[in-house]
């Protein structure tokens, strides 16, 4: 018994030490990890609605509580939580129930590898870029599976569309990322950021940045590329059969986590992360990522949806050549020592 008590005391002591000295638990649970992400998610939902409302000459959320109705997302989530869960008779029950949770895990996993500063990173990894991109790539598979498991025509068409879309944007995205990795000679996020020292990659590789940005918006499934969930054509697309809390989880994972993760990825890869680095480096990363998120959310107010046909055509005709040209330029430039410090 004494051992157990002693163990608990040691754990508590460790936790206190950890939380006060920004150890791994603090990182995973509080700052770049869960708590921060969920608070950010609430702010993002609210901001998106408020901003769309401003452009559209409306007021937006107002009555849910807090200043200007900032508690609206929480109210929405409570509403989702209390709604009835309906599992269609024809659905593949196990997959149908498991997929929202898997999707949340997959969508949030890259956060572990994303650095906020040189030390503020949950799981430092020399292959962080590869891991993050691998998880990002996994998401359309979940969409496809969801469409399959729902066993509804609309959901299935939505899933197929997501697969088609992925065929379009996947290659440009990876080729652009390869340009970054080549220029920095590493898959490690910290090294990637450090090698953007005088000039960001967005300035030295503008073509790659553009291709990556467009592919990224498509990956997020945001307007103008919200093709898999096209509400006016196929009801709500791949998650048409979901209700209640499972729908809420999908909204969080598919709409918010992907937005956050990919915006952060773009910031780290192209906008120089925490550079110039003086002051509070985490704040630099956050502000840059926030501007990217704001821009992407702003697209909702000015663009309609594209068609799957045009998107895939654009991806293969324009984005892929762009990213390959970018890769070749980077390849040539590395021999000239343009990307300083690291010699081939």
């Amino acid at each position: 018994m004494m051992d157990v008590a002693g163990l608990i005391i040691r754990i508590v002591k460790y936790l206190i030490y950890d939380l006060t000295h920004m150890g791994p638990v603090f990182k995973a649970v509080i700052f770049p990890g869960l708590a921060f992400v969920f608070i950010l998610a609430i702010v993002l939902v609210w901001l998106e609605r408020k901003m769309a409302a401003k452009v559209q000459m409306r007021i937006g959320p107002l009555y849910a509580g807090g200043p200007e109705g900032i508690l609206q997302p929480i109210a929405d989530f409570i509403k989702f939580a209390f709604k009835e869960l309906i599992i269609p008779d024809q659905a593949d029950k196990l997959l149908f129930i498991a997929l929202p949770i898997v999707s949340l895990v997959v969508a949030m996993a890259p956060i572990a590898f994303m650095p906020y500063s040189r030390y503020m990173i949950i799981s430092p990894n020399p292959y962080g870029l590869l891991f993050a991109m691998a998880f990002v790539t996994l998401f359309p598979l979940i969409i496809l599976l969801t469409g399959w498991a729902s066993n509804s025509k609309y959901a299935f068409i939505g899933g197929i569309r997501a697969a088609y879309q992925q065929i379009g944007y996947e290659l440009p995205m990876w080729f652009s990322a390869l340009g970054v990795a080549l220029a920095s000679r590493s898959f490690d996020f910290v090294k990637i950021v450090e090698s953007q020292q005088p000039l960001w990659f967005a300035l030295t590789q503008p073509l790659g940045a553009l291709a990556f940005f467009i592919a990224m918006v498509a990956e997020m499934g945001r307007i103008p590329f919200d093709i898999p969930e096209a509400e006016q054509e196929i009801a709500a697309g791949w998650f048409v059969e979901y209700t209640g809390i499972m729908f809420g989880i999908y909204m969080v994972s598919a709409m918010l986590m992907k937005l956050y993760v990919l915006s952060l990825l773009f910031t780290v890869m192209y906008l120089g992360g925490w550079l110039p680095g003086w002051g509070l480096p985490e704040a630099w990363t956050f502000v840059k990522a926030f501007i990217v998120m704001f821009l992407i959310m702003f697209f909702r107010a000015v663009f309609p949806r594209t068609r799957i046909k045009t998107f895939v055509n654009m991806a293969w005709d324009k984005l892929l050549p762009l990213s390959i040209i970018n890769l070749l330029i980077v390849f040539a430039l590395t021999f000239t020592g343009f990307y300083g410090g690291v010699q081939p």
């Binding site: 000459m57 409306r58 307007i223 096209a230 006016q232 909702r300 107010a301 309609p304 949806r305």
Partner: peptide, 16 residues
């Protein structure tokens, strides 16, 4: 027409 193309601003402006 705006909302059918998922252009919510056109929807709100027109109705306003």
């Amino acid at each position: 027409f705006g909302i059918f193309l998922n252009h919510s601003t056109m929807f709100m402006w027109s109705f306003g």
